[in-house]
Design a protein around this nucleic acid. Structure first.
Lengths: 240, 240
DNA sequence: TAAATGAGAGAGAACGTTCTCTCTTTTTTG
DNA sequence: CAAAAAAGAGAGAACGTTCTCTCTCATTTA
């Protein structure tokens, strides 16, 4: 992550002078150009995220983003064709994080643990992003911002739908497997269970519990309670 | 609600010619003028809500709102001093609805039913607003919009905090009473329970379950599951 | 030296808001 | 009660600002 307070040309982080490359810092390895381009894009995205958190997608101006990135508009528009493109990119990476977490679902022994862990991982991941120089609840802000934008921006909506559909499929698959194993009451409406758990997770992320003083461990029984309540796993003691 | 397509002076709804207006200053409060003013404000707010749902708080322009209200900017600015003021008013009314629902909480016999009903009433109320000419998920849109705005707009944040604090107090009081009555496991963290239930409710509202085909009755067991799971009411069969 | 990169002015549109003016309604006055 | 005066309501052009994005030209890199 590039420091946002750096002066112009900050992206050209001057490495050791010992480099035998003339006048430049790193890597001729694979086209220094391509590397630099990637770094610049990253720089813009980081700056844009900070601005969006501060002022919202519509509220943040391109000038604001340029300042934050230590870049001129002319430079910035070389990397992104429009403000929309930046928003879409951010929405995409923001939603991508879920996929990795879900992939780890199969590691848990039973479905209740799996769900609880997925929920906790999501919240953990979200609150981990909040250690930067920005406001403490930056993840929640960006999350709500993306959701709001997805409701009127066709392409952002498409990005969200794609990833949510993927998530839903994955959860449903895990649930079905657990049902086969007899871990779930066969009467359970799995679609509803998935949707409810997603709603719970999004609600917690939106309110940003960790930033409000609720420790992550405290959330463990919350997710577990909902999971148990929804799936009613077979239990010799519980009837009804 | 006044038709927005009416020609000029449409707001001067000719009431009964029989009412003799008193010529004192009280007329300013209850007279035809005052009633007209109220109707116009209502007209603007309705138009603004439609625009905000369509384009977001920042995305909707004052011209857009003026068109929707069938009004000139000059006229509109006679009723609201700024766009901000309109946003604040909408945020306030939007959050006000919760209060009425919570007031009915004490009618339920036990705490689990009470919570379930509060949750269902919230969702019902939200989805009931969606029968207008707007998009089917307009309530969810406005809800997310208000939440997003509250994260960077001081005064909107204040409005939200006020009403959420009130809600929290009310729920906590009900929980405490139930605890006294022995309906709740004495170990339960009531603050966490309140926060979790609020998160669940907001999550469901945000995803707008009713608009997505999930009937209201289906949500009943969801709220109940979370409530039971969180509060662990004493039950001779369940241990631990 | 040719291509890539960037700075920064600024074009053109759109923004929120204000201004001026007209028309209607209400109140005061003779 | 009619005429005069004041106040209210609205239209729409116009204001200054800010927006996104482009263009020109200088600098750096290979």
């Amino acid at each position: 992550m590039v420091d946002q307070a750096l002066p112009k040309q900050a992206a050209n982080i001057s490495a050791d002078a010992a480099d035998d490359e003339p006048r430049c810092f790193v890597a001729k390895l694979f086209g220094k150009r391509a590397r630099n381009r990637e770094a610049q894009e990253e720089r813009i995205l980081t700056a844009a995220m900070n601005c969006f958190i501060r002022s919202g997608f519509r509220g943040a101006s391109m000038n604001e983003i340029c300042s934050e990135a230590g870049m001129s508009p002319g430079a910035l528009y070389r990397y992104f064709p429009s403000k929309e493109a930046i928003i879409e990119k951010i929405a995409a990476t923001h939603r991508h994080q879920s996929a990795e977490i879900l992939a780890r679902m199969s590691q848990s022994k039973n479905i209740i643990d799996a769900i609880t862990n997925v929920g906790l991982d999501h919240v953990r991941k979200m609150s981990m992003n909040d250690q930067g120089p920005g406001p403490r609840d930056s993840s929640a802000r960006l999350f709500v911002e993306v959701r709001a934008e997805s409701m009127r921006n066709e392409s952002v909506a498409g990005i969200c739908d794609l990833h949510e559909g993927l998530m839903r499929e994955e959860l449903l698959a895990a649930f079905s497997a657990a049902k086969e194993r007899g871990e779930i009451d066969p009467v359970t409406d799995l679609e509803l269970a998935v949707a409810s758990l997603a709603a719970m997770g999004e609600g917690i992320i939106m309110r940003n519990f960790p930033a409000q003083g609720v420790p992550l461990e405290a959330l463990e029984p919350v997710f577990r309670a909902l999971a148990v309540g929804l799936l009613r796993p077979t239990n010799p003691l519980a009837n009804k």
